[in-house]
Every structure is written in C-alpha cells, then in structure tokens.
Design a binder for these strands. Sequence first.
DNA 1: TCCAATTATTTTAAGCTTGAACTATTTAGG
DNA 2: CCTAAATAGTTCAAGCTTAAAATAATTGGA
Lengths: 152, 152
Amino acid sequence: MNETEPVSKTRLRLWLKLLKASNRIEDEIRRKLREDYQSTLPRFDVMSALFRYPDGLKMSEISDLLRVSNGNITGIVDRLTQEGLAERASVPGDRRASLVRLTDTGRSAFAEHAAAHEGWIDRLLTGLSEEDTAAMIARLDKLIDTLEDPRP
Amino acid sequence: MNETEPVSKTRLRLWLKLLKASNRIEDEIRRKLREDYQSTLPRFDVMSALFRYPDGLKMSEISDLLRVSNGNITGIVDRLTQEGLAERASVPGDRRASLVRLTDTGRSAFAEHAAAHEGWIDRLLTGLSEEDTAAMIARLDKLIDTLEDPRP
DNA sequence: TCCAATTATTTTAAGCTTGAACTATTTAGG
DNA sequence: CCTAAATAGTTCAAGCTTAAAATAATTGGA
C-alpha cells in the first residue's frame, strides 16, 4: 500500500475492516440463534442484560445499557413476556416504572444460549493467535476510550 | 486480567470489544447522516456501491455486494428512485432483470456524503496512533481471512 | 398546597431487515 | 420444440429500530 496514503484514508480503511469483521461475525451469530433457538440477537442482548441483574432492571435501564431506544425495548420485552421468558413487575413507590426480570424458564434458556454463543465466537476467532488476540484487545481498549471521551 | 483465563473467554472479550467499538462508530455515522443529510446508513451503502459502478448494478449484484436480502434492496432502491437519486433501467435481453444507476443528482449528493463520512471517521479514529492503526489493520486482515475461509 | 417541569413507558410513523412465497422470465436438457 | 428447473426481482409477514408524540405519574420550587 502506498506509503503516502493520507492518514484519513488509512483510518477509513481501518473502519471498513472493523465493520466487515464485526458484520461477518454478527451475521453468523444471528444465523445460529435463529436456526438453533428460533431467537434473535436483540432478544439475546436483552436476556443477557437481565441475566446479569437477577433482581431485574427497569425499562430505561435496559435501554441505557444496550444503547437502544425505549420504544425498541418495549417491543422486545413484550415478546419475551408473551413467551414466558421474562416478566414485568411493578416498582414500589413509582407507578410509572416497571421492573423486568427473567423467569426461571428464561434464565435456563439464556444460560444455554450463552454457552452456545461462547462456543460460536471461540470457533469464529480460532484463526487468530493468542498474541494477535491480546494485541487487538489492547488497541480496541484504546479506541473505545477515545470514542467514549466526550472531549471533541 | 487473570493469566489463567480460558482462551474462549478471551475471544469472547475480543468479540464484545469489537462489537462495542464498531457500534459506537456506526451510531455516530447514522446520527450524522440523519442530522446533516436526512439520510440513512443503508441508503449510503447502496449509493456507495452504485457510485463505484457508474454503468450501474443489477439488484442482485447490489444485494450480493452488500450482503443483504433482495427484498431489502427492493425497498431501498424504491425510495432512492422516488427521490430522484437513482433510476432503474431495463437490461437488454433479460426482461426479468433491471439495472440501477445513480442519477447526476445522486452522484453529486453521494460525493458530498462520502467526503463528510471520511471526515467523521477521521475525527472518530484520531485517538489511535498511526502504529496502532496499522497494527489493527494487519490483524483485522488476518481475522477477515479466517472468517472468509469456508473450511471449518 | 399547587402546578410547571421532569420522568417512565407506550404508541406512532417510517425505515430497515430477514426468509419465504410468488410472479415473470430465461435456460437447458430430453 | 417443449417443459421442468433455475433465475431476477417483488411482495409478504414478522421482527427490529429510530425519534417524536402521547399518556400517566413523580418531583421540586414558589
């Protein structure tokens, strides 16, 4: 590649490769969730958040954690509760809010999905050495730090 | 981090960071496209593909390039043509197929969006050094190679 | 105590996304 | 030449996603 490539072009190339890699992995995860569990990645993400908080999360806490809109969470939680995987409970002292928890069924279903998910990722990333994996993690940490920094 | 972490956990951590970084950047790109151009990332992607092929692409060529379903492309191209940014033309000798091209309006709009897009990526990735950028690119190339390898 | 401002969630309209079914057309083999 | 199989694109149902509007409830200051 040309040594005189402007740094903005190099960064664009980095972004396109980042996008390509994450899209390829995500496509595979979505396919496996659908085929093996008749589920979806957004449901998996919501269940994952709820799994980490056994006492439950409020709707807006879920949307904050997952960085998606409240309206989106309403729809996903509606479907999870319809299928008996999650339930809404009232919040003492605040009739506006509701607390969402996984049911026992939901917890065990998620535990199985999560184990399988880890196996899929393990297989997909087998081609990277441990050194490359560690080196990527270190640099992604730096990148994430700069992305989260509110300074311009 | 614990030296004895299983390699599958390390790979899972890598995946989650990859996802976090690409989601943060993508969210910002989507926001800027909507606020500055009243456009969307899928439209940008389709226009980008068409921009690179001035003689046009068939519908299924667009869906192959972008790795999305034909039905999705139908909808996006419908809206781009309704807004005068693209047009469909017939394919000599094959009445099933159609060829999609950007209009002059579409070409100039995309050129502006693409220049802005490069500037946004440049700004978002400013926090990474040139060494780190190159090191990431090299490793993402390896990762992409393994993801594209059809061997199990 | 009252009420404007704020908050929590749902609803809405619009865009995107998939996989499957459907329609129209082309291709290839008998 | 004929027709089954394959192909190109559209339509459909269902799920996701956003931002904004709407509704119900809470909060805090005058």
